[in-house]
Simulated assay, not measured.
Amino acid sequence: MSGDFERELTKRVWSDDGFAAQVESDPVAALGSMGVEVPAGVKVKIVVQRRDRVYFTIPPARTPNAPPPTAPLNQMDLWSSQGLFIWLVPVAAKFKLLALRNAARTGGDQP
């Protein structure tokens, strides 16, 4: 892997139709085939954008059956990778995402 996880993932989706289908149906296995181990407790959803669709990602405001939050909502971070790849990640999972990205850059070896 070149060290640019997002670029490698995008390139593979664009060039391999079977892999493109797998990233949406079984993203953990798809990432595993690239040598990336998803940290325990992390659920991954990869969305391959379609030219004829608009996507909305609504951050969770509360847990099910909980009262509405009283504090301002600031639960998501938006990260961009060279204008090509966007990460939307709950703040609580930020360090797990960093571990996943680091594993991709180091070939799966954790520091």
Rank of each mutant, 00 (worst) to 15 (best):
T57K: 08
Y55L: 14
A93T: 05
V28I: 13
E8D: 15
D26Q: 02
D52W: 15
A29P: 00
A66Y: 04
K11W: 03
K94A: 15
L9H: 08
P67F: 04
W87V: 15
I46V: 13
T10A: 12
R7P: 02
T63P: 03
E24M: 10
R50S: 12
V47D: 04
G35N: 12
G83I: 04
D77M: 12
S81W: 05
G41Y: 08
R105D: 03
G41F: 09
P67L: 06
D26V: 03
Q82P: 02
T70E: 08
V13G: 00
A30P: 07
L84M: 03
A40H: 14
T106I: 03
E24S: 09
Y55E: 10
P90M: 06
A66C: 07
T70G: 13
V23Q: 04
Q110I: 10
G107V: 07
A92P: 01
A103Y: 07
R101F: 09
F95Y: 05
P60M: 12
D17T: 14
D77F: 14
R7H: 06
V47P: 00
V54A: 14
V42M: 15
G3N: 03
P69R: 13
G18N: 11
E24R: 05
A103W: 11
P72K: 13
W79E: 14
R53P: 00
T63K: 14
G3P: 10
V36E: 08
E37I: 12
L98T: 03
G32D: 11
N74H: 01
R53V: 02
N65G: 10
S80V: 10
V23T: 10
G35A: 11
A104N: 10
A92G: 09
E6Y: 00
S2C: 07
A40M: 12
P60F: 12
G107C: 13
L73W: 03
M34F: 07
S81I: 06
S81V: 06
R50N: 12
L100F: 04
S15A: 07
G83Q: 00
S81H: 07
P27V: 06
P60K: 10
N74W: 01
P69K: 11
P64K: 13
V47S: 09
L9E: 03
R62V: 07
V42H: 06
P59T: 10
A103R: 15
A66N: 14
F5N: 01
F5L: 05
G32H: 04
K96A: 14
S2G: 11
G108C: 01
Q75R: 13
L78K: 07
V54H: 08
P111N: 09
N65K: 11
V13K: 03
K96G: 13
L98A: 05
T57W: 02
A21P: 00
L98S: 04
G3L: 05
P111R: 05
M76Y: 10
D4Y: 01
F85V: 02
V54M: 08
E24A: 10
V91F: 12
N102F: 14
A103T: 04
I86T: 12
I86F: 11
A99K: 09
I58M: 10
G107M: 08
K43F: 06
D26K: 09
I58G: 00
S2H: 03
R105T: 04
L98I: 05
E6K: 02
L31I: 07
N65E: 11
G35R: 11
V13Q: 07
V42C: 14
